[in-house]
């Protein structure tokens, strides 16, 4: 049934550090690479080599510019995937029971063999986390790499979501956000992790760490300036003659 569990044993999710993300899109590529050949239907592309390519992705990286009242504008790279909400509207709207939230770890999944591809779950998601695959006609979403994190055939360091394993900047963290003593929970507490669109009432499990405040300089202090005074003097001799002569033309 698409009734949400009243509580889940654990709240597995991601913590994304907006201070550290460099916007390289490696997580996007590794996500597509892993998920197109593992859990469920492949992530298809339409017209991939044509004039108007498009395809199914479970993770996309936006870039935003923030212009504060004072000071310089700041560019912030913003990876976005399913937030595995505690009060996930995509689960309760599902007419077939294909969408569900797991009691054991809180992961939101789609049973693709029951999905009719009506698209209503994507309509109900404020974050754009669900995309209907055009080739398969079923809804695709982030599985938190459910086929990696418990997979004992993989070396232990690989038992994290593909995006987390790939991130070269260490901007993505994975863990149990329901356990206050976990590393990710401590990180969220320390850095004031935030929810996206809290007014939607979805109670996202994934948290975003805001960029750290930038240093501000009250007045221009330049200790090297005296040493860098221009040393150009009036040219003399042949160069002086050349300079004057060329000025005439």
């Amino acid at each position: 049934m698409t009734e949400l569990p009243t509580s889940t044993d654990r709240k597995m999710g991601l913590v994304i550090d907006l201070d550290t993300c460099v916007g390289c899109h490696a997580c996007v590529i590794s996500c597509k690479g892993w998920n197109t050949e593992n859990y469920g239907a492949p992530l298809s592309d339409q017209n991939p080599y044509g004039a108007d390519p498009s395809g199914t992705f479970l993770n996309r990286v936006h870039s935003y510019e923030v212009q504060p009242e004072k000071g310089h504008a700041q560019l912030i790279h913003f990876p976005k995937s399913c937030l595995h909400c505690e009060d996930a509207p995509c689960v309760t709207v599902c007419p077939t029971g294909a969408s569900y939230k797991r009691v054991e770890d809180g992961i939101v999944l789609v049973n693709e063999s029951n999905c009719i591809g009506c698209g209503l779950c994507a309509w109900s998601c404020p974050y754009g986390a669900r995309e209907l695959d055009l080739a398969e006609g079923v809804m695709k979403k982030c599985t938190l790499c459910v086929d990696r994190i418990y997979n004992e055939n993989l070396p232990e360091e690989d038992r994290v979501p593909s995006c987390v394993r790939t991130c070269p900047a260490g901007a993505r963290h994975f863990g149990d956000l329901g356990d206050p003593s976990s590393d990710v929970s401590k990180l969220v507490a320390e850095r004031s992790g935030m929810d996206l669109m809290p007014e939607m009432g979805t109670k996202p499990v994934n948290k975003y760490l805001p960029p750290r405040p930038k240093d501000t300089v009250e007045e221009e202090i330049d200790i090297l300036a005296p040493l860098l005074a221009p040393v150009a003097e009036e040219p003399k001799g042949f160069l002086g003659w050349l300079d004057k002569t060329l000025e005439k033309f």
Binding site: S63, V66, Q67, P68
Partner: peptide
């Protein structure tokens, strides 16, 4: 501002989309 959680820092503007083409969304 609320969508990105960055609204209290200043005016937020979409600078670059995630991809040049279109998508399902």
């Amino acid at each position: 501002g609320t969508a990105t959680g960055l609204g209290d820092r200043g005016a937020v503007r979409a600078f670059e989309p995630p991809h040049t083409g279109s998508n399902y969304l």
